[in-house]
Design a protein around this nucleic acid. Sequence first.
DNA 1: CAGTGTTGTGGGCAAAGATC
DNA 2: GATCTTTGCCCACAACACTG
Length: 357
Amino acid sequence: REGAEAGDDFVGGLVDGVALHGHRARAAGAAARPLHFFAYGWGETSEPLGETQSGAMARLRGLGFVTNPLGLVCDDVEALLACYRGIEVQRATLGYDIDGVVYKVDDLALQARLGFRSTTPRWALAHKFSAQRASTLLEAIDIQVGRTGALSPVARLTPVTVGGVVVANATLHNADYIAGRDSKGQPIREGRDIRVGDWVTVYRAGDVIPKIEDVDLSRRPADSVPYAFPKTCPICGSDAVREEGEAAVYCTGGLICPAQAMEKLKHFVSRGAFDIEGLGAKAVEAFFADGWIREPADIFTLADRHGPGRPTQVKNREGWGGKSAENLFAAIEQRRAIPLDRLIFGLGIRHVGETAA
DNA sequence: CAGTGTTGTGGGCAAAGATC
DNA sequence: GATCTTTGCCCACAACACTG
């Protein structure tokens, strides 16, 4: 970081490389500097590092980089799995956190031929260790209304530590998921449904995402009842309908529904759309609640209505000061002209994400 | 039907900046 | 100095559309 601030591209790049190891590496690095770094790949090189992955890694070692000593070349799947199991045994004593191993095609010419999908290489594959699990109580199932009007059930859990972090919420996806079926009607959790009051096992998928794995029927209260998915929007009271062939239930309120209107606003100002700094989710909620911003156009008249010299000013709001108000107005002015794709994305049309926009 | 790409939903953490 | 909010990063998976 210090190097990056000083404009040192090499050190900045190195820190980026460390960051690519993910949040666990970054957390560990922050807790105990100095950072340690295993070189595991490369970007541009003036000449090939080798003909194989293993050869390139050896070359990096020759150049003075530290590489992970556990890497090895395997000839078949059995050898790969033996390596995976061997590393899993050593996991606790490594001195750094890992969540699995990565298998890579050794021949770099084959790597080049295999190429990439939209987000991942075809020549490398992560094999993660099974995640830690914990039992806890499902206290409630809340319904969230998204910007498209989709009603999403969220599990409220008695907070429990899973893999070092406290988990209190987990998505339940949709009504079928709670009932124990997937979108094709096939049973999940062997068809066991999820009920408020159940003891559930939770884990973090990919060591990150909280998920409910299963319910413990032996601890289910005798008086529990299957979860009844709401037939109306919990926010605006409009009918909530599920179209044939769709997974989600949608609020029919449209922009009449405050939840939809507000979530649409949040999306409008979000990073991929107008990206107005200083106007995050919390600020949108507060301005919306007071009627200062009800629709996207209101953002661009905010200074006229609540800027300097007006009776009610942003800078006098709780949590706001002169500096933050000034910064907000400047950020809004800066976004009066934006690329067309950001505008299209910002409109929040269903099925039109960043790529389509 | 498998593979792929995209969207939309959900989650967490650290750092930075600002206010309280 | 403590606290709050935002930013920016990371990740999973369900759902769906499309292709060959």
